[in-house]
């Protein structure tokens, strides 16, 4: 049996709020799980259970209070994101981890098309051919996610919440990365677009991506899950 692409061992998260009398919030205690290539693991549990927090720790956006998070990619030395260097993390994110948050962080002046195309561009290489190919692919994603062509050349700052979310999905999924983290990607989408996102997730799974997701919408979670894990099982024991 091959090793899991993602291996979470004894991961805990506590926030220390220094300006609230140093109060400690234990959000997650002792999470253990493994996710293999091609699996889509859906995280369950009531809100406040640390689902988002766990995704953020896998992405190294939040630091981990205890435990380790191993990412094993074919042909690469395993990386523990809790102790990896900033350089390794930047590279890991660029090449190997897609993270779809609930909100698009808007970049001033950059058109929707280029926001989506950017992950396909290589740093230091701005050849017109590469840019052209990336834009064609970005257009394909925008079409699929029903962003009207008249919006492609505008910066997404003024777009609706649902449009911004779809831009964000396209930007985060356009590059076929081996690990995909989804934090409520369908939260403000209509049924039709939610169905498209379900299709996109299934396609990513079929090409062998390991996926961990949180879905507020039960129907979406049911449609994509190959396995479910309830974070209430890892609740800190006081």
């Amino acid at each position: 049996m091959t090793q899991a692409l993602l291996q979470i061992q004894g991961v805990a998260k506590r926030f220390t709020l220094h300006h609230q009398n140093g109060v400690e919030l234990a959000v997650l205690g002792e999470a253990n799980m493994e996710v293999r290539a091609g699996e889509c693991v859906v995280l369950d549990g009531p809100s406040g259970m640390g689902k988002s927090t766990l995704l953020k720790m896998i992405y190294a956006n939040y630091r981990t209070s205890a435990g380790s998070i191993w990412i094993r990619l074919p042909g690469r030395a395993p990386i523990d994101v809790t102790s990896a260097s900033p350089y390794e993390l930047v590279r890991l994110r660029k090449e190997s981890i897609g993270y779809v948050s609930q909100f698009l962080r808007v970049i001033p002046r950059v058109s929707a098309l280029d926001v989506v195309a950017e992950p396909l561009l290589d740093d230091g290489d701005d050849s017109p051919e590469i840019l052209q190919v990336a834009r064609v692919e970005a257009g394909r994603w925008l079409t699929r996610l029903r962003i009207p062509e008249r919006l492609w050349h505008l910066p997404p700052a003024t777009f609706s919440g649902g449009e911004q979310q779809r831009i964000n999905i396209a930007r985060s999924m356009i590059k076929p990365r081996p690990l995909l983290l989804l934090d409520e990607p369908t939260a403000s989408l209509d049924l039709e677009n939610a169905q498209t996102v379900i299709d996109l997730i299934r396609e990513a799974s079929a090409r062998g991506a390991a996926i961990v997701g949180i879905f507020h919408d039960v129907h979406v979670g049911d449609a994509v899950a190959t396995r479910r894990i309830n974070l209430a099982d890892f609740r800190t024991k006081e």
Binding site: F15, L17, H18, H19, N61, Y62, R63, P86, L89, V90
Partner: peptide, 18 residues
């Protein structure tokens, strides 16, 4: 010290939190 989003989203030091 840290990745920009780490420091901004999960600040550790009292001064950074402030």
């Amino acid at each position: 010290v840290g990745l920009t989003d780490q420091v901004l989203d999960d600040p550790q030091h009292p001064y950074t939190q402030l």
